[in-house]
Design a protein around this nucleic acid. Structure first.
Lengths: 221, 221
DNA sequence: AAAGGAATTTGACTTAAATCAACGCCTTCC
DNA sequence: GGAAGGCGTTGATTTAAGTCAAATTCCTTT
């Protein structure tokens, strides 16, 4: 429901699509390039980012299997995208896309919903970047990951401890949260000191109390 | 082109709409409330924002005449909206909206474009919030205002000095740029010291060299 | 199993922006 | 005209996060 189209629509799309494989690390969308294509990721993880000329960069988001890329397009690409591993995707030109829209109006409706959803996420992230402390940012991230795990299901947080994989490097996390690697690490350390999380290793955390974490993430209490 | 629908579509919409007047300062959309309505502003300026329980807040954007509100909606409002002055708007329920969509497919297409555009702006703002310094943020804001002035026209910056109104208070600007009032003020002061801007009064700036300002805003050179 | 290298953590120090506080400048309202 | 209050600027100080540097862990490779 959250980010994939129905199988039916996907089939319709794939007829107009061009399948591609992108090797790990390749930047296959370059910010500023003419935006002729629209993508659907069929396999693998992608980093979406924007960068300043001096190297500072912000990761807008991570997109995985089933998700769409290239929505925010108008003439030129507004962001870059890089394969974090080997990625398989379907690419189709904007013109064929419009064709498909005419044939499957439901698809356009769906895309509008997806766009609205992404906009909501973006607004939430802006609040985080503009106003939250480092520890709050990291807590928010952990919480979002839990919510994603428990799928789009109930907005209810588990009341028991829950273990989470952190597939993403500290560097990527830092660029996603608007922090430095060191600050991310120190924020994790602080949450650990306070008994809110425990690490098996750097890429597997246990959230001891998702609810307490949520209070930190959203400055409640 | 940027944010308004065609007259024809607007007419279609207004038949299903309910006209309303909101007095200055009223919060007419409250974050978290059930999201039953969709709005089109016909007159006046609105502040769109998200807040944390302890009062920290981020202004997502300012929306004016012709713009839409309530797009990023799914069950509950993702943000609050407050009238900055007396505001006139058309309100219609989500259900009638869907009806209108069926009658005027072009409208849905248009909304998708608007959403994509807003998403682009949101990504740009995230880069600003995550990675730009105070002076860079303020410069970026000034620049965006110039671009808005010269309408959606050429992406070309004026090469001569240009005077700009700053209708927004320092407090709003701070909440929009993820800074404090004082830092916004000091950033203006620094730009002034460096000969990049001049003030007639607190709400009217002259950008002495939009192009130099753009280099600062986007860390070029 | 050892070595090498990358990723992560931790520590010492610096800095940009926040905070706290005072002051000036308009507006408006008696 | 003068007091009052809101808004904006400026100054002094604090602080959270950034930077620089070293140590540690983890993973790969030989």
């Amino acid at each position: 429901m959250c980010d994939a189209l129905s199988d039916e629509d996907l089939t319709a799309l794939s007829q107009a699509a061009q399948r591609m494989t992108i090797s790990a690390g390749r930047v296959f969308i370059e910010e500023g390039d003419p935006a002729n294509y629209f993508y659907n990721i069929t396999q693998g993880m992608v980093r979406v980012f924007k960068a300043l000329p001096d190297g500072r960069r912000h990761i807008t988001g991570f997109m995985g299997t089933g998700q769409f890329l290239g929505l925010a397009i108008s003439g030129h690409c507004a962001f870059s995208a890089e394969a974090m591993e080997e990625v398989h995707l379907c690419r189709f030109s904007r013109s064929t896309l419009n064709q498909v829209f005419s044939d499957f109006p439901a698809l356009e409706r769906r895309l509008l919903n997806i766009a609205a959803h992404e906009l909501t996420i973006a607004h939430e992230q802006m609040l985080l970047l503009a106003r939250k402390s480092a520890v709050e940012r990291v807590s928010s991230y952990l919480l979002n990951q839990v919510m994603r795990l428990d799928a789009c299901a109930a907005d209810k947080l588990p009341s028991t401890a829950i273990t989470l994989r952190l597939p993403i490097s500290r560097a990527d996390l830092a660029d996603y949260l608007g922090l430095t690697i060191e600050t991310v690490s120190r924020s994790f350390a602080q949450l650990k000191r306070n008994g809110l999380i425990e690490f098996s290793n750097a890429h597997a955390v246990t959230l001891m109390s998702p609810q307490k974490l949520e209070m930190i993430a959203n400055a409640k209490g």
